[in-house]
Amino acid sequence: MTNTTTIIYNGVQIINPKFLLVSAFMITALVSTVTGTSWGAAGTIGVAIMGIAGGLGISLPATAGAIVAGAYFGDKLSPLSDTTNLAPIAAGSELYEHIKHMLYTTLPAAIISIIVYLIVGFNSSGQTTNPETVDTMLSQLDSMYSWNLLLLLPVFIIIFGSVKKWPAVPTMLSASFISIILGVVVQGFALKDGLASLVKGFNVGMTGTETKIIWEVTRLIDRGGVVSVTGTTVLIFCAMGFAGIMSVTGMLDTVLNSILKRVRSDSGIILSTIFSCFIMAFVTGSSYLSILIPGELFKNTYVKRGLHPKNLSRTLEDSGTVLVPLIPWSAAGAYMAATLGVSTLEYLPWAVLNYAGIVVAMILAITGIGVTKLSTKEKVEFKVAFGIQRDEKDV
């Protein structure tokens, strides 16, 4: 927790009025990439940035949109993110090649977002003031933590592990245990509290502070642990069970044939995947179901057509993960609206990355740019792995 707090503490202090929207996007993107949670990033640094925006007279819907966009940038690319891990599982690709392949759509969408936020920022007006709440947050964080560059070590381990393609689980566990050691050595936390935080999450009482802590700081610190993802884990199992039932009973084949009967091209397959993700997202309001169901639906079809599964996993994230927070009745949309104090429909136009990525994905599908094909050998290997019957073309 101390490494995340270090990033948030310093990020809050560098925001400039003219660059607030860009700062909101980039800082939130950094925090969500490091932590792997869009909700956590929006509920921590996002809340602080919203307070600053209110004091500066900057548009709250625009700020909220930038925060949501930044939060889902990290949600798409972080090896710690549940959806980033779920998409390659659903598609049959590999985690780090999935992340690398998403750069084709996510980086252009991020660049477009930054350009929009810069233009809006330079044309906005506001007074340079520092909200009292933010001052209080920084003061209380100062009293609870000893800031040290060593606290960023777990962050660098995650980033280095991603670059070197280390196994995700050992890398995350190593970073977690090093965080506990740093908490004990640098912050003076009790070892038992550090170990307990792995299960139940961190809470402000573990810092030993006797000062009355404001709600914003408590919201920042009190989270995490295995228990916090129990609901998500159960939902994933249920969703995979639902997908399995649809597959075994033949319902998926019926839906697949209905969608694909007029599709004759690779671009049509990818565009059909995007359309299917849209349907699942709007009907269920769940990012997990909008990844799992279309993933099961199109998994074999991509391989049969000689398309690498990482094309599918990228498309699932481009059109499933990022769309859900723009839907008012979804859990993500409701959470973002409640946390940031701006309705979903108000911040929707400003969450540029969320829909720009979908547009870029469509363009790539039509042009064929960034669409990876399977070699004959790879096609045979994936058919064997997926249990697909081979034909004479595979020889």
Rank of each mutant, 00 (worst) to 15 (best):
F25T: 02
M26P: 00
M26F: 03
I27L: 11
I27R: 00
I27K: 01
T28N: 01
T28I: 01
V31I: 06
V31S: 01
V31Y: 02
T33F: 15
V34R: 00
T35K: 04
T35M: 12
T35A: 14
G36L: 05
T37R: 07
T37L: 01
A41T: 01
A42S: 08
I45C: 06
V47L: 07
V47F: 05
A48D: 11
A48C: 10
A48I: 05
M50I: 12
M50Y: 11
G51I: 08
G51D: 13
I52L: 13
G54D: 15
G55M: 09
L56R: 05
L56K: 01
G57E: 00
I58Q: 04
S59Q: 12
S59C: 04
S59I: 09
L60S: 06
L60Y: 10
L60K: 14
L60W: 05
P61V: 13
P61C: 06
A62T: 05
A62I: 10
G65N: 02
G65D: 15
A69F: 01
A71C: 01
A71E: 09
A71T: 06
Y72F: 13
G74M: 03
G74V: 09
G74Q: 09
D75N: 14
K76R: 13
K76Y: 13
K76P: 02
P79N: 07
L80A: 14
S81A: 13
S81N: 04
D82W: 10
T83F: 05
N85A: 04
L86P: 00
A87C: 14
I89Q: 12
I89G: 08
A90H: 15
A90L: 14
A91V: 12
G92K: 12
E94F: 14
L95T: 13
E97H: 15
H98G: 08
H98T: 08
I99S: 07
K100S: 15
M102C: 05
M102V: 02
M102E: 11
Y104M: 00
T106F: 03
A109G: 07
A110T: 03
I111R: 10
I112F: 07
S113C: 03
I115N: 01
I115T: 06
Y117F: 09
I119R: 05
V120N: 04
V120W: 03
S124C: 02
G126C: 06
G126W: 02
G126S: 04
G126R: 05
Q127K: 15
T128D: 02
T129M: 14
N130V: 14
N130E: 14
N130S: 15
P131N: 14
E132D: 15
E132M: 12
T133R: 00
T136P: 11
L138H: 06
S139V: 02
S139M: 13
S139F: 10
Q140I: 08
Q140T: 12
L141T: 11
L141Y: 12
D142A: 10
D142R: 11
S143K: 14
M144C: 04
